[in-house]
């Protein structure tokens, strides 16, 4: 079953036609990776799904429900969380406040969700009182992903999580995402081929605002022609 589908989605950002008919289907319970060179339209695809760059035409379905005309703030309420490329951990808020801000029902993170988060990211325990501006890049990424987990959303959209991270942090993120994918569907945008294909199940390759290839990650890993043609690996 597909949890998310995009049908011939076009998006303009100011005068630029960025997405030129994107078609993709994310299967429930899988970790799908969206690959492509810089400027291919990956981040715009994420933002279009979230309503932050509304599409100009086409259809986006979340669990068969059209969401392309919804307001940006309504889409997360359906059970979709975004971890943006810039991470956007609020610098003047503490880690605890960053997590509480994301809670949609109630004032605090539910106990079971907090236990789940701390189980995945044990170092979070000592960060709660720290302000966002005092966190390292790796800690920020941890908080950004943790914030996406507080509501137990069904679909997580994660944009370039390894960008700027030290190799040791990339490895712990890989372990964390491998655990998260057991309980949520993940759509991951990533430039780091080895990282993404080590945890991904399905892949999409974007070029010039379109999905040009799709399939199983195993197949992609073994096909150096595709890697070289589309990704320059």
């Amino acid at each position: 079953m597909n949890i998310l589908e995009m049908h011939d989605v076009h998006t303009h950002v100011m005068a630029f036609h960025i997405l030129e008919g994107v078609n993709l289907a994310v299967r429930q319970g899988r970790l799908s990776i969206l690959l492509g060179r810089n400027g291919a339209g990956k981040t715009t695809t994420m933002k279009t799904i979230m309503g932050l760059h509304p599409c100009t035409s086409g259809k986006i379905l979340f669990k068969d429900m059209p969401i392309q005309h919804m307001h940006d703030f309504q889409i997360p309420r359906l059970g979709i969380s975004l971890v943006p490329e810039e991470r956007y951990v609020f610098s003047n808020l503490t880690v605890d406040e960053n997590l509480r801000l994301a809670v949609r029902k109630g004032k605090r993170v539910r106990q079971d969700r907090m236990e789940y988060i701390l189980d995945i990211f044990p170092p979070m325990k000592r960060l709660f009182k720290k302000k966002g501006k005092d966190l390292s890049g790796g800690e920020k990424q941890m908080v950004a992903v943790a914030r996406a987990l507080v509501n137990g959303d069904e679909l997580l959209i994660i944009d370039e999580p390894t960008k700027g991270l030290a190799p040791i942090m990339v490895e712990s993120l890989r372990v964390a995402l491998a655990r998260i994918k057991r309980s949520a569907t993940i759509l991951l945008v990533e430039q780091n081929f080895d990282f993404s294909t080590s945890i991904g199940d399905d892949y999409f390759i974007m070029e010039n605002g379109k999905i040009v290839r799709t399939g199983n990650v195993e197949e992609l890993r073994s096909n150096s022609a595709i890697q070289s043609r589309y990704l320059g690996v």
Partner: peptide
């Protein structure tokens, strides 16, 4: 306080 820093991220968290 969050909105002062980034409105887009506040919206992305599902806040009107």
């Amino acid at each position: 306080r969050a909105g002062i820093e980034s409105r887009e991220m506040v919206r992305a968290l599902g806040i009107d």
